[in-house]
Design a protein around this nucleic acid. Structure first.
Lengths: 143, 143
DNA sequence: CCGGATCCTAGTCGATACTG
DNA sequence: CAGTATCGACTAGGATCCGG
């Protein structure tokens, strides 16, 4: 019975982060209280990160956010803002003007998300071309 | 007609990253070729990041990955692995043994994702308690 | 201006059964 | 062992109408 030997480790740098992942992996990944799953579930949807990034520089009003993200519907903007408020990522302040106006502002917790998010954005920008290229190759072979 | 003044900027540090976001915001966010949307769409699903993290330390076989992520179905594991392969994040190597065995290994591109991902994981772990607490408060008020 | 309420569709995901 | 195929449930998300 032919069997694969224990697969050899990746050639180069097993960074500290890699080992961190290993430690993480043996941890609770099975449960619903896994932080990673919970967080990814929260920010992995279509609009959350975009909204957080729009609010990064300064607080914005509902309609300002909507203008910044042209193709979001009011429904999803409202819902996503509510979820973010629920998670303590932003505060919602109503000004009793006429017509009313509502300002959304990142909390300290929300701002703390900007840093890891920025790393992801930079990675996205720097690898986007390569990913698209890989996709084209793959699809070309599959055709 | 009462109208809100231009909202005042956040008190503290407008970091370099914040300004980076501002620059990013004026850019193409409207289109489908926006890198951020594309990438978030790719890694924002339920399993992608978990699989990448499982493969972080060393290449793994199909069933090894499945054991590491107990509640993933074969269907989703296969599909997510295919998507990752298509995006050039990992390579798939079939050993013509009997029964067959397939090894999945992160490419350099896939490994480059580990770094931004690690930041996100650390953030998730360090803020998870606070987020859950915020959620409880919110839900308590809504009840 | 800022939503809430409702309806509806398209995609995501899981369960199960089957194959080389 | 490592998948594929098919079905059906669930849900994210869009369109539209309405209201303070």
């Amino acid at each position: 019975m032919t069997r694969l030997r224990k697969s050899n480790p990746l050639p180069a740098a097993r960074s500290i982060l890699s080992r961190r992942f290993e430690a993480w992996r043996v941890q609770t990944l099975d449960a619903e209280h896994c932080p990673v799953r919970d967080v990814l579930n929260a920010i992995g949807d279509k609009w959350t990160t975009l909204i957080v990034m729009v609010l990064a520089a300064e607080p914005q009003r509902f309609s300002e956010i909507q203008r910044a993200i042209p193709d979001i519907s009011k429904r999803m903007l409202t819902q996503t803002l509510r979820d973010l408020e629920r998670d303590g990522m932003l505060t919602r302040k109503v000004f009793p003007t006429k017509p009313p106006s509502v300002q959304y502002r990142l909390t300290a917790l929300g701002q703390s998300l900007l840093d890891p998010l920025a790393h992801l954005v930079l990675w996205a920008e720097s690898t986007h071309a390569e990913i698209k290229s890989a996709r084209r190759s793959y699809d070309r072979l599959a055709s």
